[in-house]
């Protein structure tokens, strides 16, 4: 089975190709590449991915400029219709800046850029994005970011926890994130933002394949594996 997936590229995106490779690896179909300046998305999309990188050179705030680029109006509309949207790293920052996800990503508490494998716990399986994992499962996926310190006020954090919208949590302190949150879902569960890079853990040559199940699970949940 296959799907119609799209990868959005902003000026300064640098994980868009890796994301496309991952989407093609699980489905056999190359995703459609969409440029930030496009006003419209392709029709009948099953999946939209916002990749990592440094869109617009992180001007103003990470993800802030990309969040107001033309294509994001179409992404927001698609998300509102229930189309699954995955934002990884800078893509997560873009989704928070676009207010499609709550909270914000601050500079890492230790000031340093962090690039290493991290251990994560899958906290919920109430989303198609984590259909490939079991609740409580521990996985290892790399992070590579400077602004990954998840922040939201206490009442928002309580709401996210109560609604099962904390998708992934760091098992070890990573970047200062409130409650060690590594990934969050929107209210409907069809938008996931996460700092770790699942597309960088899909091949034994990467040093691990724990990211593969995210894409396989989503594909299976959407079109049947």
């Amino acid at each position: 089975m296959s799907w119609r997936a799209a990868v959005i590229t902003f000026p300064g995106s640098n994980c868009d190709r890796d994301m496309a490779v991952a989407l093609e690896r699980v489905s056999g179909a190359a995703p459609i590449r969409v440029w930030h300046g496009d006003a419209d998305l392709p029709d009948r999309l099953d999946f939209i991915a916002l990749p990592g990188g440094f869109s617009y050179g992180d001007y103003l705030r990470s993800g802030a400029m990309a969040a107001v680029s033309p294509i994001m109006r179409a992404v927001a509309a698609a998300a509102g219709r229930g189309v699954p949207v995955l934002g990884v790293c800078n893509g997560f920052q873009v989704l928070t800046e676009a207010r499609l996800l709550p909270g914000a990503l601050l500079r890492n508490a230790g000031q340093n850029f962090i690039c290493r494998d991290v251990r994560l716990r899958v906290e919920t399986t109430q989303s198609l994005f984590i259909a490939g994992y079991e609740s409580g499962q521990e996985i290892a996926i790399p992070v590579a970011h400077h602004d990954g310190n998840y922040f939201a006020d206490e009442s928002t954090l309580d709401r996210l926890e109560g609604e099962g919208r904390v998708a992934l949590r760091y098992l070890d302190e990573c970047n200062g994130s409130r409650r060690d949150i590594a990934g969050v879902l929107n209210e409907a569960g069809n938008v996931l933002g996460m700092m770790p890079h699942p597309e960088r853990a899909i091949d034994p040559a990467h040093g691990g394949t724990d990211g593969l199940a995210l894409f396989q699970g989503a594909l299976g949940a959407l079109v049947g594996a």
Partner: peptide
Amino acid sequence: EKLLANTVI
């Protein structure tokens, strides 16, 4: 509110 500041933080 739309761009210059992120009022979440």
